[in-house]
């Protein structure tokens, strides 16, 4: 490590959560921890965001659940998961071996369920923050059904806030007319940060069979194709609030991440790219450090929102 490296400060705060660097892995793209632990030292990540959990175990959708499209994937996994207690029992002991904040993505089909999941995870030692999923397009109830209306979104945020002392991070849907309204509601509800974007609702048709490729008919588009859409929404959301913004959407490399940061994001999450190259979060961390050296920036926080708009 050179002298200039010793001075580089990549740390960032998300509410009371201190991250050693601003690069997380996005919910649903890194499993619950063990899946990639042989390849990637989880302690090197800024945070580990685990796949969406509701109160009870959930089967998810019938396969086919994923289809590749130019520049991305359309998925309709449907939030298959072990349930809140199942997660706590099965995965927390594993995750505790690592020096990494664990953020649990939570969802429910009713307002009450969101509150119950929050309370269960609040009581579990080893959970460091909750990301509220009000934006998944792949479940018939819950998810996006709450996230595209300001009032229902606010109800969920307040319910979760009431049931936990952990930092609360609603994950916003891109599928709204004005993202700033949803960002502001999160801030007013006492949320510690916001994350965006979830996948964009999408559909793929097999023209030979004349059927939708996904059994769920529709799914969510992720991957590099959505990155510019996400940058614009992150920029708008960051301008609307003072709480930190965690940005995700098509990050493949440090350049993609830095765009988000200049647009106002305090941290980023790598998603779909993990499926292709699980080392991507680590190369993004290194790339951000390189960029800081090249631009003589010693503290990462000085880069946040450092966009020069015409």
């Amino acid at each position: 490590m050179s002298d200039s490296d010793a001075m580089l400060d990549l740390a960032v705060n998300i509410g009371e959560l201190r991250l050693k660097n601003p690069v997380m892995v996005a919910s649903g793209t890194f499993g619950y921890g063990p899946e990639y632990a042989d390849l990637v030292d989880l302690s090197k990540l800024g945070a580990m965001v685990v796949k969406g959990i509701r109160k009870i175990p959930w089967e998810g959708n019938e396969p086919p659940r994923m289809v590749e499209v130019p520049g991305g994937l359309v998925n309709a996994i449907g939030l298959q998961g072990p349930g809140a207690q199942g997660f706590v029992d099965k995965y927390i002991p594993f995750l505790k071996q690592y020096d990494v904040p664990v953020i649990v993505n939570i969802w429910g089909t009713t307002l009450e369920e969101y509150g119950e999941v929050a309370a269960i995870l609040d009581a579990a030692d080893g959970v460091h923050a909750l990301e509220i999923n009000i934006s998944c397009p792949n479940v018939k109830e819950g998810g996006i059904a709450f996230g595209t209306n300001v009032d229902t979104a606010a109800n969920v945020m307040q319910m979760v806030r009431k049931n936990t002392r952990l930092p609360v991070i609603p994950k916003l849907s891109p599928n709204v007319p004005n993202i700033g309204d949803f960002a502001k509601i999160a801030e007013q509800c006492g949320c510690d940060a916001i994350s965006l974007i979830n996948t964009l609702p999408a559909m793929v048709i097999d023209i030979e069979t004349r059927r939708p490729v996904l059994t769920n008919t529709v799914g969510g588009l992720s991957g590099p194709a959505i990155h510019p859409v996400a940058v614009k929404l992150v920029w708008e959301a960051a301008a609307a609030v003072n709480i930190p913004v965690i940005a995700m959407g098509g990050i493949q490399n440090a350049q993609d991440a830095i765009e988000f940061i200049l647009a106002g994001a305090s941290a980023v999450a790598v998603g779909t790219a993990n499926f292709v190259d699980p080392m991507t979060p680590l190369t993004v961390i290194d790339g951000i450090a390189d960029y800081m050296r090249r631009h003589n920036v010693q503290r990462f926080s000085d880069l946040i929102g450092a966009l020069d708009v015409h």
Binding site: T29, E35, G60, P63, M66, F275, P278
Partner: peptide
């Protein structure tokens, strides 16, 4: 043989 995403058990596509 199922269509796979990640190949490592993370994406839950090939269930």
């Amino acid at each position: 043989d199922k269509h796979m995403g990640c190949g490592m058990g993370a994406c839950l596509a090939c269930v």
